[in-house]
């Protein structure tokens, strides 16, 4: 009797243990640290209450970081999804060429971000980069991709879009293929033109996919780090400094652990909101047969 009651708990205990050790504990510790002043080495951690948080939100640099992160996320996610959707509709056919293009655009997804960052740094070099060489070839002026605050964030977004498109397109194609063909035939018999078919049938049928990719995209973009760390180090003039890079700088370069932890807590809250939203709406199913 009691054994039967205990057994299930016993069986999931290893999983719970691992989960607690590597997930719950670090989170709790981060929240604990966010209320202290600590420089990583000193044996003392001074309790400061919510001071770290109030300092953060009143600081101009942090506000800028928030803004950068939001702008970067909005740009990356929306453009990736729009471009991927167009590509998916175009590539959703059988044939060797389409298969090849699908493979080709997917390949950036499996390359390490460090290599990608190096590659794009070279492509986007203001004086010797391939992109500007092309622009000049057509008689257009050079663009200071990574070296000007007005274009740097967009340039990073371009890299992320380039990397993300293959994956997004593939998921969209899978979504498109799950739409039964006969509803398109019914629509054809109803005399529906292509644009209306896309808006009234394809898009609503794709809404679960669309939603999935949006949330995953937002969560990923919020945590962008490698490209920034390698390509711009947050500059020029803080124009590409985003959440995770900011946390990294404060934590591991300025050793203001409490401060970095406070920013980490804010990031955690934001990402949790999106995650909860995702599971909530997933449970309700955006729609489906």
């Amino acid at each position: 009797m009691t054994w039967n009651k205990i057994r299930p708990y016993l069986m999931i205990s290893p999983a719970i243990l691992v989960f607690s050790l590597f997930f719950i504990y670090p989170i709790c510790y981060m929240i604990y640290l966010s209320m202290h002043d600590w420089n990583f080495v000193s044996p003392e951690k001074n309790f400061v209450g919510t001071a770290n948080f109030t300092n953060l939100v009143s600081e101009k640099e942090f506000i800028e970081v928030m803004q950068n992160t939001f702008v970067y996320t909005a740009l990356t996610v929306s453009l990736t999804i729009i471009i991927a959707l167009i590509l998916a509709v175009w590539l959703n056919k059988s044939g060797t060429i389409y298969g090849f293009v699908q493979g080709a655009i997917f390949s950036p997804h499996i390359i390490s971000l460090v290599s990608i960052s190096m590659l794009w740094m070279w492509l986007m070099d203001t004086d010797y980069g391939l992109l500007n060489w092309f622009l000049n070839l057509f008689g257009l002026p050079s663009v200071p991709w990574l070296t000007d605050p007005s274009t740097s964030l967009l340039s990073l977004a371009i890299v992320a879009i380039w990397k993300g498109i293959g994956f997004n397109t593939l998921i969209f194609i899978a979504g498109l293929q799950s739409i039964p063909r006969d509803i398109y035939e019914a629509a054809a018999l109803d005399g529906t033109n292509r644009i209306r078919t896309f808006i009234k049938l394809t898009l609503p049928m794709l809404s679960p996919t669309l939603f999935f990719l949006t949330i995953i995209g937002i969560i990923n973009s919020f945590q962008v780090f490698e490209t920034i760390s390698i390509m711009t180090q947050g500059g020029p003039i803080n124009s590409t400094n985003t959440f995770v890079y900011y946390i990294y700088e404060y934590g591991f370069r300025f050793f203001k652990i409490g401060y970095a932890s406070a920013a980490g807590v804010i990031l955690l809250v934001i990402i949790s909101i999106f995650t909860i939203m995702y599971f909530r709406l997933l449970a309700r199913r955006v729609h489906y047969q």
């Binding site: 039964p180 509803i183 019914a186 005399g191 529906t192």
Partner: peptide, 25 residues
């Protein structure tokens, strides 16, 4: 007008929407 074996209704639309779709076109 065709009636399909597995109906081929527009899943995202209501019954009214289904019936009305061709007329709207």
């Amino acid at each position: 007008a065709m009636v399909f074996q597995n109906y081929a209704l527009y899943p995202t639309m209501t019954v009214r929407g289904n019936i009305e779709f061709g007329l709207k076109n």
